[in-house]
C-alpha cells in the first residue's frame, strides 16, 4: 500500500500459551482513520495495544512477526519503548484523567519529557486543548480538578493529553463506549478533524461508529483478520460471508 504508516506482517501475539493474534498482516495508511471491528474477544484491543507495546506490561505475553512503523520494526532489539509511545499516542476506553488539574493533565507528557519552559508548556497545553475541541469549554477552568469535567470532556481531555506530546499516530480503544450520544458525536467529529494531522486507528465494538468515522475498516474474528477494505465497501458489499454475517447482525 502506498503511504502506509504502519506495516504489520505475520504478527502473532500470545498470552502464555494461548495465541490471541494469528498471522495478522495489514498495512495502515497515513492520515486516515482505520477502524477495527469484531466481536468481543476477537483480539482487536490486543492488536491495538501491540502497536504501542502496551501489552509489554502483561506478564507472560509474547509477540512474533513484525510491526514496522515508518519502516522500522517497533519490536526490534534496541527500540526505546517510551520513545515509541511518544510517537504512538493512546486514548483508552474509560477516560482516565489523572487526579490533577486540567492544565497539569495536558502538561504531564511534556513535564516527564523534562520540558521546563513555562511559556512553551502553556502554549502547547492551549493548542492541544484547542485541537481536542475542548479549549472553549475549559479555558476558565484550567486549575480545576480534571474529575470535575463531564465524561465527554474528560475523554477529550485525555485526547488533548495525548496530543500534547505531538504523536504521529493516535490509537483509540473504544473511546466513546462510555459516553452518551451527544458526547459520542463530538468525539466522532473530532476524529474527522484529527485525521488531517494524525494517523488514527480506532477499535470499536460499535460497527455503526466504525462506519461513520473510519476510512478503512478491518474486521477481526477469533484473533484473525478476516477482511480489510475501504469502509464503504466493507459496509455495502463485503467480500467475505463472515463479514457480511457480522455486520448484518446474524451473529455476535
Amino acid at each position: 500500500m502506498k503511504n502506509a504508516k504502519i506495516n504489520v506482517s505475520k504478527f502473532n501475539f500470545y498470552y502464555g500459551d494461548s495465541r490471541v493474534l494469528k498471522d495478522i498482516t495489514i498495512d495502515i495508511p497515513e492520515n486516515r482513520v482505520t477502524g477495527i471491528i469484531g466481536p468481543s474477544g476477537c483480539g482487536k484491543s490486543t492488536f491495538l495495544r501491540s502497536l504501542n507495546r502496551m501489552n509489554d506490561v502483561i506478564l507472560g505475553s509474547r509477540a512474533e512477526g513484525s510491526v514496522m512503523l515508518d519502516g522500522r520494526d517497533i519490536y526490534g532489539r534496541d527500540v526505546d519503548v517510551a520513545g515509541l509511545r511518544r510517537k504512538v499516542g493512546m486514548v483508552f476506553q474509560k477516560s482516565n484523567p489523572f487526579p490533577k488539574s486540567v492544565f497539569e493533565n495536558v502538561a504531564y507528557g511534556l513535564r516527564i519529557d523534562g520540558i521546563k519552559d513555562k511559556y512553551f508548556i502553556e502554549e502547547r497545553v492551549e493548542r492541544s486543548l484547542r485541537d481536542a475541541a475542548l479549549w472553549s469549554e475549559v479555558k476558565d477552568r484550567l486549575r480545576d480538578n480534571a474529575f470535575e469535567l463531564s465524561g465527554g470532556q474528560q475523554q477529550r481531555l485525555c485526547i488533548a493529553r495525548a496530543l500534547a506530546i505531538e504523536p504521529e499516530i493516535l490509537l483509540m480503544d473504544e473511546p466513546a463506549s462510555a459516553l452518551d450520544p451527544t458526547a459520542t458525536l463530538k468525539i466522532e467529529e473530532l476524529i474527522q478533524e484529527l485525521k488531517k494531522k494524525y494517523t488514527i486507528i480506532i477499535v470499536t465494538h460499535n460497527m455503526q461508529q466504525a462506519a461513520r468515522v473510519s476510512d478503512l475498516t478491518a474486521f477481526f474474528m477469533l484473533g484473525e483478520l478476516v477482511e480489510y477494505d475501504i469502509t464503504s465497501i466493507i459496509f455495502t458489499k463485503p467480500s467475505k460471508k463472515l463479514t457480511e454475517d457480522y455486520i448484518t447482525g446474524r451473529f455476535g
Binding site: M54, G83, F92, P97, F98, Y108, A162, I165
Partner: peptide, 18 residues
C-alpha cells in the same frame, strides 16, 4: 492506585520509574 493511572502515564511515554 488504579491501573489506568499507570497505563495513562506509560502511554504518554513515561518510563516505569517516572
Amino acid at each position: 492506585v488504579p491501573r489506568s493511572y499507570r497505563e495513562g502515564a506509560l502511554a504518554l511515554g513515561a518510563t516505569k520509574w517516572q
